[in-house]
């Protein structure tokens, strides 16, 4: 079954025909050309596909594309402006919070989801917000440090 849906992706309104059984992750990557959400476990365990949906972090592998009709979707592609990295991106670079990079877009979107609703989280709150994002290089300490750095500066 095909459904015509309209959603705002990274500030741009897009209308696409999607199949009932296709996930938001699949449609973002294969129909809308947005590849920062990664295909990891496709089970909601790893968080590599995390995007913001109406401002909240969600696993795009656990959302049917048709459910996103009318939604506002934000991915890491939308963060840098005019060649300037977003403070979270800058902090990840400065803290060497990136190793292979596969988990990074999801980590950053989960962190943004947290800072948007809670600009000054504690370390425990950061860890809780990132608990659904796995880094198989296991570089968690630097990732948490990077998020805390932005939280302390309060400029996310």
């Amino acid at each position: 079954m095909l459904h015509e849906i309209t959603l705002t992706v990274n500030g741009e309104q897009r209308t696409v025909a999607v199949k009932s059984h296709h996930t938001l992750l699949k449609v973002l990557r294969e129909q809308l050309g947005i590849t920062s959400p990664k295909i990891g476990c496709e089970n909601g365990e790893c968080g590599a596909c995390t995007v913001l949906m109406n401002g909240k972090a969600v696993n795009s592998c656990l959302v049917l594309a048709v459910e996103a009709d009318g939604a506002v979707i934000e991915t890491v592609e939308n963060l840098s402006k005019e060649g300037e990295l977003h403070p979270l991106q800058q902090a990840f670079v400065e803290h060497n919070a990136i190793q292979c990079g596969f988990c990074t877009p999801g980590m950053i979107m989960s962190a943004k989801g947290l800072l948007d609703r809670n600009p000054h989280p504690t370390v425990d709150e950061v860890k809780e917000a990132l608990a659904g994002n796995l880094c198989r290089c296991t570089g968690y300490i630097r990732i948490v440090d990077a998020v805390m750095d932005v939280a302390k500066k309060g400029d996310a």
Partner: peptide
């Protein structure tokens, strides 16, 4: 329940 991403759905 689950992770933040799961709790948001």
């Amino acid at each position: 329940v689950g992770s933040e991403q799961v709790r948001n759905r």
